[in-house]
């Protein structure tokens, strides 16, 4: 099966996270062009207790967005095992019935089913699909007619440009939020320590495996018993995501993999815009409606400013401050987009 290449969009679509209906409304009200949601099970990579949409709230969310001419994407981006396959199949059908604007999927079985069963429903390749180069993107385009690919957070800016120049489909990149240091879809650290991973269960460093404990040495955070970090009195203690702990290698104790920090690419907007990136994704379906409002508002303002005056654009200090406040560890990084970070 072959599909014509999708036309190259020229504008940065702002794609915001919605972990529940209040967040969805907050995103739409503060200027999101699109929101992405998940159902209440392990078919999506934010399978957290109390999060996500059932049939009723999903329908309400789609109606709320569509009435305002905004789009809704459904993430079905985990990898079904045979015994769970029915759940993914049902989820694809449910997304189609809801009339959402795209499914974001990673597994070949899910993409294949969606493409055959609902050929009118646009497909985006999830970041969990680990497509870091255009040959991989061509595979998914040729077989499933994907319209867009979400790039893993591992490419430097010139590499993003190179992929875009050769990609048959539009690119979405992460702009802000929690920073995965590993290629998404290929990280098993969480299941190695806890038994549950994003690929299998839609969770990373699951909350049920977390323990916080005050000790004479300071506040300790543990994941399934493994000491992730120990914080001196007064030192801010973040969620113990496995890759962001302080560990010992040789004689050094340090953030061996990554600091607790958030990705923030506000200053790269003119380059991303000039390059022809189709969409900017904000991470954080697990975050509060207040986070979604704040981040969406800043990014809406920034994208609009960048579109008006791309050459004179510079991120305003108040935008950076607002984003810094809702960032992990209250610090941000350009991540892999900036080669020196690698």
């Amino acid at each position: 099966m072959t599909y014509p290449a999708a036309s190259t969009p020229t504008s940065l679509e702002l794609v915001c996270p919605a972990g529940n209906l209040p967040s969805l409304k907050a995103a739409i009200d503060h200027g999101a062009d699109a929101v992405y949601i998940g159902f209440r099970d392990d078919t999506n990579a934010r399978h957290f207790p109390g999060l996500n949409f059932d049939a009723k709230t999903a329908a309400q969310g789609v109606e709320y967005a569509h009435r305002r001419n905004r789009r809704v994407f459904v993430a079905l981006n985990t990898f079904p095992q045979p015994s769970g396959w029915e759940r993914w199949r049902t989820a694809v059908d449910r997304a189609a019935e809801l009339g959402v604007d795209a499914i974001i999927a990673a597994d070949i079985s899910v993409l294949d089913y969606a493409c055959r069963q609902h050929p009118q429903l646009p497909l985006h390749l999830s970041v969990q699909g680990s497509a870091t180069n255009y040959e991989a993107i061509r595979f998914y385009h040729e077989h499933f007619g994907i319209r867009r690919v979400v790039l893993p957070r591992v490419l430097a800016l010139p590499q993003v440009r190179h992929v875009l120049e050769h990609s048959p489909v539009a690119l979405e990149v992460f702009g802000f939020g929690g920073l995965c240091i590993m290629v998404e879809g290929r990280c098993l650290l969480s299941s190695y320590v806890t038994g549950e991973s994003p690929n299998m269960c839609g969770v990373c460093s699951p909350a049920k495996a977390v323990r916080w404990q005050e000790t004479p040495q300071g506040l300790e955070t543990r994941l399934n018993g493994l000491l992730i970090d120990r914080h001196a009195p007064g030192e801010p203690a973040g969620y113990p995501t496995l890759c962001k702990g302080r560990f010992t290698v040789g004689e050094q104790a340090y953030y061996a993999i990554e600091e607790p920090t958030s990705l923030n690419t506000l200053e790269l907007l003119p380059e991303l815009c000039a390059m022809g990136i189709a969409a900017i994704k904000i991470e954080g379906r697990q975050r509060s409606p207040a986070y979604v409002s704040q981040v969406t508002q800043v990014w809406r303002t920034a994208i609009d400013a960048c579109r008006r005056h791309p050459t004179g654009y510079a991120p305003k200090p108040e935008w950076q401050q607002a984003l810094g406040k809702v960032s992990e560890g209250q610090q941000t990084t350009l991540g892999a987009y900036h080669r020196h970070w690698q």
Binding site: Q81, P82, S109, Y113, A136, R138, F139, H143, M200
Partner: peptide
């Protein structure tokens, strides 16, 4: 990597290594 799967598809018999996610029989059959 899926880039290699793309280049090998229909060209020659190939093997799937630890970098390829095969979590179910549908994907394997495809």
């Amino acid at each position: 990597d899926m880039s290699a799967v793309h280049l090998l598809s229909g060209q020659a018999p190939f093997a799937l290594g630890t970098g390829i996610n095969i979590y179910n029989d549908h994907t394997l059959r495809f």
